[in-house]
């Protein structure tokens, strides 16, 4: 086969590098930012955009893992509980053992990976739907987290993780580290999912697990990997969460984050039915949600309006996905 023919086939097989949903999201975010810039002059200043990007990072980062999980046709509703376990463990290590930045990150990531492994093993080999398993583990993780909290808060957390924080230590040349790391990981995941066989197996599993198995994809291993990856990213995101929080960590940490992450994934255009999706869209979805929340506050509107907007975005995004699916079937 000639190189030209090979390239032609590749072109036919690969979807376009940027999906329609992502183009729409870029447009919506651009319009929103422009509108906010006009109505509140401070919106487009560094002092406003930098914290916004920092606040986007944890949700977007976990969203990378969640996107892969949802592409395989699964879901992980235990990430909120997992954030609680990772962050309380890490915060305690920071306070009581006075560990350094690298150790803290390693500890958090290892804890997250372990929790992800529990989910992955149960889902891949237990043959029970992911929502049931992760709903169960969500409660287990919460129990574990509360036990580690031990009826108190973790006080006096030192500034060890300020590298990921909102303050001046959290930026290089004006770019917040937490957001930069998130963008890099998103880019790597995008390339991996699109251009390697291993990455594309996730789509095959989500499209038709049986067909994927017959085609030689090791379905269970791939599924296991998706949950472990999500766990790893939860671990890293928990470090971001601690860095962005105050010097006290209380048990509300992580609460409701699973829904925020799933919202970002769905708004980003990933099909909740599996088989299709993109991590780039998830990053944009998370950015849009945080921009709306900041915008509502800066405009002086009622806080609950941001919930309303996020709800509308989700419904519109899912509606668009269903329409696209219908169009494909009729083709």
């Amino acid at each position: 086969m000639t190189a030209v023919a090979e390239a032609k086939i590749k072109k036919r097989v690969l979807p376009s590098p940027v999906t329609g949903q992502e183009m729409v999201l870029v447009g919506v975010i651009a319009v929103l930012w422009a509108a906010l810039a006009v109505s509140t002059p401070a919106f487009l200043t560094a002092g406003s955009i930098q914290p916004l990007l920092v606040a986007t990072a944890p949700v977007a980062l976990i969203g990378v893992g969640m996107t892969i999980v949802i592409i395989t046709g699964g879901i992980d509703v235990s990430v909120g509980g997992a954030i609680m376990v990772c962050s309380v463990l890490t915060a305690k290590a920071l306070v009581e053992a006075e560990v350094g930045l690298a150790v803290a990150v390693l500890l958090s990531v290892a804890a997250g990976a372990l929790l992800g492994l529990v989910n992955g093993v149960l889902i891949a080999y237990g043959r029970v739907h992911a929502i049931i398993i992760t709903f169960g583990t969500a409660n287990l993780f919460m129990f574990l987290g509360l036990r580690i909290f031990g009826s108190g808060t973790v006080n006096g957390i030192p500034g060890t993780l300020a590298f990921f924080g909102r303050g001046p230590d959290g930026r290089t040349l004006g770019v917040p580290h937490a957001f930069l790391i998130t963008v890099l990981i998103t880019a790597a995941a995008w390339w991996w999912l699109r251009h390697t066989a291993g990455g594309r197996h996730f789509f095959a599993i989500g499209g038709d697990a049986q067909a994927a198995r017959l085609a030689g994809v090791r379905v269970q291993r791939r599924v296991l990997l998706a949950y472990v990856l999500t766990g790893l990213l939860v671990g890293l995101a928990s470090c971001f969460v601690i860095a962005q929080g105050t010097s006290t960590l209380d048990q509300s940490v992580g609460a409701g984050k699973e829904l925020a992450v799933i919202a970002a994934v769905v708004i980003g255009g990933t099909s909740i039915m599996g088989g299709r999706g993109s991590v780039l869209g998830t990053l944009l979805g998370a950015l849009l949600v945080q921009s709306v929340a900041s915008g509502v506050t800066q405009l002086g509107w009622r806080s609950q309006l941001s919930d309303l907007f996020v709800g509308i975005f989700i419904i519109v995004a899912v509606g668009a996905d269903l329409l696209r699916a219908r169009a494909r079937r009729n083709r």
Partner: peptide
């Protein structure tokens, strides 16, 4: 709460 306070200072 921290993010909202930041947004308020910007606004």
């Amino acid at each position: 709460a921290t993010q909202m306070a930041t947004d308020l200072m910007n606004a």
